[in-house]
């Protein structure tokens, strides 16, 4: 079995006072073993909720997974009991978050926090688990790990804390690491260190990475395949090289054109007009149509389907991809 994760038509809705927020609305994609998949989109596009849904960590109420399947090694995570899920979380699927300070517990030492996961999932004794956590800290490039293991999160810098988070996430040798904006809170020189570390660890440990970010530079650097999300849906999926060379969906194209480039002459920036739509009141038809320069009549009336264009590329756009040919499972 090649696919590690298969999302099929996943729908995660939030029931709020203002109305139903369709945060994830029919998302399908796959993650192969050992590959790095980039998930890109702006705030509110549903990329983080997709990851939390995979771990079944959606707070309910107000959130609920209302439809679809999440297959992990062929088994549907939506059918698992809470006890089975606890076994999977941290063990087979681990996650690191944007803000390393708020995701670490301030009253436990770094060593205790890493050891907890090891004890729980691998059945080691406390002492062995602590020894193992020193090895993990060394693996993620923390100097003097024997000393750091006894320190508290506030004694570490932001970059070091993110290394501790990565050490914790990798301590049980997961098959999938989900990284939600792992470097967004960090400075560029520290970001470069962390990205380099993630690449190196992926090579050594062979896990798959689902990298969620709004930063197209980070995506280009890390991902082999990219999924672009907008307003709760996948609008384009492609091999990274092809996506950056020739984006097909007008949103992807607009996004790529609107970032200032370091190695290009200065000039006026391309602009995607308007705002991200209100999630409780999405426009009819294609959600992107009010901001799309190519929008036609049908875009305002009917939602385009995600269409397979060959070469692993999927696009949902009436104008650029015909929109209707067939739905991709």
């Amino acid at each position: 079995m090649k696919q590690l994760v298969e999302l099929k038509d996943l729908k995660t809705y939030f029931y709020t006072e203002e109305g139903v927020v369709k945060a994830v609305d029919g998302v399908s994609f796959q993650i192969e073993r050992g590959e790095t998949l980039g998930v890109v989109g702006e705030s509110g596009c549903g990329k983080s909720v997709t990851a939390l849904s995979i771990l079944r960590l959606i707070a309910s109420p107000p959130g609920k997974i209302v439809g679809g399947n999440i297959l992990f090694e062929g088994e549907d995570l939506l059918l698992k009991s809470e006890a089975q899920l606890r076994d999977i979380r941290g063990n087979d699927i681990a996650m690191i978050f944007q803000e390393p300070m708020t995701s670490l517990n301030p009253v436990y030492t770094c060593g205790e926090q890493i050891a907890e996961a090891i004890e729980l999932h691998q059945g080691l004794s406390r002492r062995d688990a602590l020894d193992e956590s020193v090895d993990m800290l060394r693996l993620v490039g923390i100097p003097l790990p024997e000393r750091r293991v006894r320190e508290y999160p506030h004694q570490l810098s932001g970059g070091m804390r993110q290394r501790v988070m990565i050490a914790m996430a990798l301590s049980c040798n997961p098959k999938l690491l989900m990284a939600d904006e792992p470097t967004t809170a960090l400075d560029v020189t520290i970001q470069a260190q962390i990205l380099e570390l993630m690449k190196k660890l992926k090579q050594e440990l062979g896990m798959a990475i689902m990298l969620i970010t709004h930063d197209l530079g980070v995506i280009a650097e890390m991902a082999k395949r990219v999924v672009v999300m907008y307003a709760g849906k996948v609008v384009e999926e492609a091999d990274a090289v092809n996506l950056f060379r020739q984006p097909i969906h007008p949103y992807t194209e607009g996004l790529l054109n609107s970032i200032p480039r370091l190695h290009r002459p200065r000039g006026r920036l391309h602009v995607i007009t308007g705002q991200v739509p209100n999630p409780v009141n999405l426009p009819p038809g294609c959600s992107f149509h009010p901001r799309c320069p190519l929008a036609e009549d049908i875009c305002r009336r009917q939602e385009p389907l995600l269409v397979e264009l060959g070469g692993g590329r999927r696009v949902s756009c009436w104008v650029r991809a015909g929109g209707s040919r067939k739905e991709v499972a």
Binding site: Q191, F244, H263
Partner: peptide
């Protein structure tokens, strides 16, 4: 600082100076 910036171009590989 400049070499640390990830560029939005997967085909461009620059020498990276890691501080």
């Amino acid at each position: 600082l400049m070499s640390a910036i990830p560029l939005p171009d997967p085909e461009y590989r620059q020498e990276r100076i890691i501080l």
